[in-house]
Design a protein around this nucleic acid. Sequence first.
DNA 1: TAAAATTAAATTGCACACAATTGAATTTTA
DNA 2: TAAAATTCAATTGTGTGCAATTTAATTTTA
Lengths: 151, 151
Amino acid sequence: MKASSASASSVNPLQQLENQLCFPLYAASRMLTKAYQPLLQEFDLTYPQYLVLLLLWEHQERTVKELGEHLLLDSGTLTPLLKRMEQRQLISRRRDPRDERSVIIGLLPAGEALRQPTCRIPEQLFEKMGFPLMEFEALRDQLNNLLTRLR
Amino acid sequence: MKASSASASSVNPLQQLENQLCFPLYAASRMLTKAYQPLLQEFDLTYPQYLVLLLLWEHQERTVKELGEHLLLDSGTLTPLLKRMEQRQLISRRRDPRDERSVIIGLLPAGEALRQPTCRIPEQLFEKMGFPLMEFEALRDQLNNLLTRLR
DNA sequence: TAAAATTAAATTGCACACAATTGAATTTTA
DNA sequence: TAAAATTCAATTGTGTGCAATTTAATTTTA
């Protein structure tokens, strides 16, 4: 055994990708986002933009702060993303007259119009994955559980 | 009920964040990477850079292609990342003489030197999360399972 | 074996992500 | 209530991610 090289027997198991939680999380997240991509690009949406629309379809108006709280994203990410969506007239941005610090994001007709045509995307993706429903739900619940801890 | 607005009763449950698999995956991945950050910044490493080192600690030499296969990243991501690591003398980059298309990434002393001082990071993180071991392992295995499907 | 196809990295361009800072508005406090 | 502290969004700068293209090297095929 060479002292200076990493032979398999001397590898700390916790330093191996497959034994970590973070790596499969990191990789699966990117793979799943990539799986969304062909379905979303038909509507010229990125995944984070789609998430913003999901929230606005529930409530037509949200402040940047509220969007950030739900998506766990800060204004450094949201501001430019929302400006791109504003340019496409999917959403509106205006200061809250009652608190000029806040910016209210509103759903515009073009944003509302994407609601129906995109509504089957989650099912389509689920079918595409061929993941058993039980496992899907178990994984989802455990991830939401983890998320609560990390938040 | 206003016809034009999204009332709670008319929301497609599959279009709600908490019912999706992708969102908690996306959010948990970012949160967990963020949890790594304070531990990694002591060594001036980003999470993807740390992943490269984990692989090189197992095998001192890997081609860019091999790194990409393990990390599920392409050269568009890896090339600039590896160049930054090369500048810091953590790794070396050279063409494979037997196949000049390939670039071999080698572990340099400064990269090897990070191995011991970072070896407790996975445990530290695990302790920090306070996630029960059983759940940790179950989640990890399900994610690796999902990853296999998505790959 | 010469042309065609394939492969591996690099490059380009765009969109996140996020830490840190800034600036304006609001709230708290002395 | 005036000063201090806090809050919210925007900005700045760096580092991924990734699709698409390019370039060079190798392999396959006609």
